[in-house]
Amino acid sequence: MGMHSDSRHTGREGVGRGGEGKDLEGWVPRTKVGVYVVNKQITTLEQVFEQGYRVREPEIVKMLLPDLKSEVVHVGVVQKQTDAGELTRFSAIVACGDEHGWFGIGRGKAAQMRLAIDKATRDAMLNIIPVKLGCGSWECRCNVQHSVPFKVVGKGGSVKIEIIPGPRGLGLVAGANITMMLRLAGIRDAWTRTFGSTSTMSSTALAVYNALRNTYSIG
């Protein structure tokens, strides 16, 4: 398959910033890490990962990444037949990132679309991971963190994606939703190749997430 240049997108919608101070008013941490963050014993998300802690409260991410942004990747309708009739629920997939090396994907279901998006946004924060940025393009070698440091591959369901380092100025050669997710992670220039049923956004989002996670697990 050739380099991916599809411009199709599904259900994209801006959610806005997740780190507004008003969202943290009245937050009482329920975990040890949350207490450390409130008491300024932990001041960066890097410290959380370096010390082997898990993020169990989205407020931790909101406080440590005040510039975090969220985007809706996909919203679908799930219908289920019950004794009382047909039950309709919304299913949302949301991506979050600070555009400087942090990225997360989350899912949420609810009877109302906004609630499903809110659940997915919180889930994305709990799934946030560090992404290693760099310049692995043989055409560039500029030492600026604008791409991935080397080729990474990720799989999700039937979907496989390859993210290949690109030179500065190339942009992102990818479909609209994949481009949006890579930008949230901080990647500005890269080629991508996709295989499988990329119209299944849950699998595509997971494939992107796993590829970005491999920037650290491999390198």
Rank of each mutant, 00 (worst) to 15 (best):
Ala185Leu: 08
Pro165Asp: 14
Gly171Phe: 11
Thr194Tyr: 03
Leu172Met: 10
Gly171Glu: 15
Arg193Asn: 08
Thr192Ile: 04
Ile164Asp: 07
Ile187Pro: 08
Gly175Asp: 14
Gly186Met: 06
Gly166Ala: 14
Thr194Lys: 01
Gly171Ala: 15
Val173Ser: 12
Ala185Phe: 03
Ala174Asp: 12
Leu172Cys: 07
Asn177Val: 11
Thr179Phe: 03
Gly166Ile: 09
Phe195Cys: 03
Thr179Tyr: 01
Thr179Cys: 12
Leu182Lys: 09
Asn177Cys: 06
Gly196Arg: 00
Arg188His: 12
Gly169Thr: 11
Ala176Tyr: 01
Val173Leu: 15
Gly166Phe: 10
Arg183Gly: 11
Met181Gln: 15
Ala176Phe: 06
Phe195Ser: 09
Phe195Gln: 07
Asn177His: 02
Met180Gly: 03
Arg193Asp: 05
Ser197Pro: 00
Ala190Glu: 03
Ala190Asn: 07
Asn177Tyr: 00
Gly186Tyr: 02
Asp189Lys: 00
Met181Glu: 13
Thr194Val: 13
Thr194Ala: 12
Ala185Glu: 03
Arg193His: 05
Leu170Arg: 02
Asp189Leu: 04
Gly166Asn: 08
Arg193Val: 11
Phe195Ala: 08
Leu182Asn: 11
Thr194Phe: 01
Val173Ala: 15
Ile187Ala: 14
Met181Ser: 12
Ala174Asn: 10
Pro167Ile: 15
Met181Leu: 12
Arg183Met: 09
Trp191Tyr: 12
Leu170Cys: 09
Pro167Ser: 15
Thr194Ile: 07
Thr179Gly: 15
Gly166Thr: 05
Ser197Ala: 08
Arg193Thr: 07
Ala176Asp: 15
Gly171Lys: 13
Leu184Glu: 04
Ala185Tyr: 02
Thr194Arg: 04
Arg193Gly: 04
Leu172Glu: 13
Leu170Phe: 09
Ala176Ile: 02
Leu170His: 02
Gly196His: 01
Gly196Phe: 06
Arg188Pro: 01
Gly196Pro: 00
Ile187Trp: 03
Ala190Cys: 14
Arg188Phe: 05
Asn177Lys: 01
